[in-house]
């Protein structure tokens, strides 16, 4: 860990300014990912701006019947919120499928969206990695890639986004709200929040320097059967090989997003028209153009079969 300085911000704009004013500064919320990465010197911030005192820890109804989730609401509080469990079950289920109880108690909504890949080559500072060291190459390509991306990847990076929560947010069409150091705010659709790696895999969000996530809004409830299924070798405390977030309606229509397959939660709205025709049709469109590695080609049939499980459960519900 490199030595760093530390301050506690008092309000969101103050926090944004503090980070923007110093190159190499970062926000610190729950710290469940950042601190681990600092110990490994994968992250080497020179200054940390702790945001735990700036509020943003409420879940409130919005004017149009949705919910606004403060950036610092913990994963535990979000997953157990009565309204979330009732109206946005896919989100609640996605969150409790991730990490452990202890981590969810610390991890925040904004932090979850910003967590970095679990690609093992990203985690070993002796190995080339375009995310860690732009231009050094991707050692995962041609290496051990069982966990890694099958679609939306590039010749520069095949990392996956490890979040379960983000997959739930994607299927619900959530919006990420931010504030910039100049006090201006913007709303970013979750679909646009995480870019694909392209030739700049070190850029993992569309946030600008100092821009702070203040919350996430959910549109008004869409009803339907909510399902989150996470496939992994062990029963708990593991990242997804493939996960499926689905909302399925009585008439067979619905939405689906995949985790564990791409640099971002993977959803193709056009594929969802095929939902009533079954998993094969949907998965075919959802994963068209996939470029798997030999180690992870199984994710394509696995995604289809896991989606089939979701659709069958939706029918039975």
């Amino acid at each position: 860990m490199k030595a760093f300085t530390y301050e506690r911000a008092k309000d969101p704009v103050g926090a944004a300014r503090a980070v923007a004013s110093q190159s190499g500064a970062k926000f610190l919320a729950g710290g469940t990912n950042l601190l681990d990465l600092m110990k490994l010197q994968i992250e080497t911030p020179v200054h940390l701006v702790d945001v735990q005192d700036i509020g943003l820890d409420k879940i409130e109804p919005t004017a149009d019947g949705g919910l606004r989730i403060g950036a610092l609401v913990t994963n535990t509080d979000l997953a157990s919120d009565r309204r979330v469990r009732r109206d946005y079950g896919v989100l609640s289920r996605a969150i409790v499928a991730g990490a452990s109880g202890q981590l969810r108690n610390k991890a925040t909504t904004a932090g979850n969206l910003l967590q970095r890949t679990r690609c093992p080559y990203f985690y070993d500072t002796n190995m080339p990695c375009n995310k860690r060291k732009p231009g050094s190459g991707c050692s995962a390509i041609g290496g051990f890639s069982r966990q890694l991306a099958v679609i939306g990847s590039s010749d520069h990076c095949i990392a996956t986004n490890p979040s379960d929560m983000a997959v739930g947010l994607r299927v619900l069409d959530a919006t990420v709200e931010t504030v910039k150091p100049d006090g201006s705010t913007r709303a970013i659709p979750i679909a646009e929040f995480h870019p694909l790696p392209g030739d700049t895999p070190h850029i993992e969000t569309v946030l600008t320097p100092g821009e702070l996530i203040t919350g996430v809004t959910l549109p008004k409830p869409i009803g339907g059967f909510h399902h989150y299924e996470k496939v992994r070798d062990r029963a708990s405390y593991a990242f997804a090989l493939v996960s499926v977030a689905a909302v399925i309606h009585k008439d067979g229509s619905g939405r689906v997003a995949l985790g564990g397959v791409a640099h971002k939660p993977w959803r193709v709205e056009a594929a969802e028209a095929a939902m009533p025709r079954g998993a094969k049709d949907v998965a075919g469109r959802l994963l068209a153009g996939a470029r798997p590695m030999p180690d992870n080609a199984f994710k394509i049939p696995l995604a289809e079969r896991t989606l089939a499980a979701a659709i069958d459960q939706g029918k039975a519900a």
Partner: peptide
């Protein structure tokens, strides 16, 4: 490659 307890899974 999987040289930590996130990558080398043992039963929980």
């Amino acid at each position: 490659v999987n040289h930590d307890l996130a990558g080398y899974e043992v039963p929980v």
